[in-house]
Design a protein around this nucleic acid. Structure first.
Lengths: 185, 185
DNA sequence: ACGTAACCATACCGGTGGGTATACTCGCAG
DNA sequence: CTGCGAGTATACCCACCGGTATGGTTACGT
């Protein structure tokens, strides 16, 4: 299970382009955002975009890879601030709650999958890898119990959807409560 | 909570258009499908499409409304085949499993939300309503316990995502097991 | 001093997007 | 027999899509 999606260093304009693309792709959707707009927002030109990334698809894949890195670092930090034990699994839900304050369009990977799933797009592998990583994270936090890890992961994904697409304000709190009950065995 | 999205009767060409649109929107995504293609697949013309539906947005909203009706009827049938009791909540997961055999692109509402969420699109209300209906269904099936209903709903949404975007083959089975444990109190 | 990588500006390409216009045929109800 | 709703066929509109071409300006390493 290769989860190593390292990102090569970028030139300044390339960095600005990826920043702008990430923000626009997440907030408006991938197909809804054209390369002209990305270059505009980044304060550069389409030429530079294609010089750096080669294609829109490659830029999309890079956006997803970087997003996976950022989120996994974010949730990792949250988890490590809690003493080892069952509380660490619950800390993932705290991390999600905090993350969603700014990122109110839900899971970027679920959203991207809606647009590029089943097309052979280079970003699909990144989506799968992130979901597998989250499941593995939960499994690790509960001492290797793969069933329990998978079930906590379902609550995590469900909370994300319920809050975002369903407008259910207490989705994460409910997920935490259900997780607590599952953790009690 | 208005969940009444009745669908007016359609002319024959209108029916074919809605059928074609529903299939294409679900399988390829909303923005990825143009009105020309829809008219083509339906064996009619763009003119007729606009005569019947007025705009692509209206057609999308209708697609979502009809999809919600179909799914809720499907899951309702499954539930009613099981004797009253906790088994009925588990039957929803059986329904989902069966449904996903053909509909392998996951939840149409989650996917649609990825594309039109936050844009003021007429379809957004349908998405929210379907999620609320599913939560209410679970709550009703467990005798009105809103917390338990919401938590089962999270497992349902999570399973849908894990199977589709995550490629997790046993997602529904894990959801069933977690649900069983939550139902045991 | 020279090459080169990074960047900017602009124009262009074919294809497609949603949506409109015109004009014609059919079947049916008054 | 006339009017109308449904449908067909085709052509058109402008905006935007992803992607390319040309040509020029900096700054830096050798």
């Amino acid at each position: 299970m290769s989860t190593d999606f390292s990102i090569a260093p970028l030139t300044p304009a390339g960095e600005r382009l990826l920043d702008a693309a990430a923000d626009l792709f997440y907030r408006r959707g991938i197909r809804a955002v054209g390369v002209d707009l990305i270059a505009d927002v980044a304060g550069t030109t389409k030429k530079t975009l294609y010089d750096r990334f080669g294609s829109k698809d490659a830029l999309v894949a890079l956006y997803l890879r970087r997003r996976a890195q950022l989120w996994q670092a974010f949730v990792g930090d949250h988890v490590e601030r809690v003493p080892p034990g069952p509380g660490r699994a619950l800390a993932v839900f705290d991390a999600l709650e905090e993350w969603l304050v700014d990122q109110d369009r839900g899971c970027a990977f679920v959203n991207a999958n809606a647009e590029i799933g089943g097309t052979g797009h280079p970003g699909e592998a990144v989506i799968r890898a992130d979901k597998a990583a989250m499941r593995a994270l939960f499994t690790g936090l509960v001492g290797g119990d793969e069933d329990l890890g998978a079930q906590l992961h379902l609550l995590y994904e469900g909370a994300n959807v319920a809050v975002t697409a369903g407008g259910q304000a207490d989705g994460i709190e409910q997920a935490r409560r259900a997780a607590t009950r599952l953790l009690r065995g």
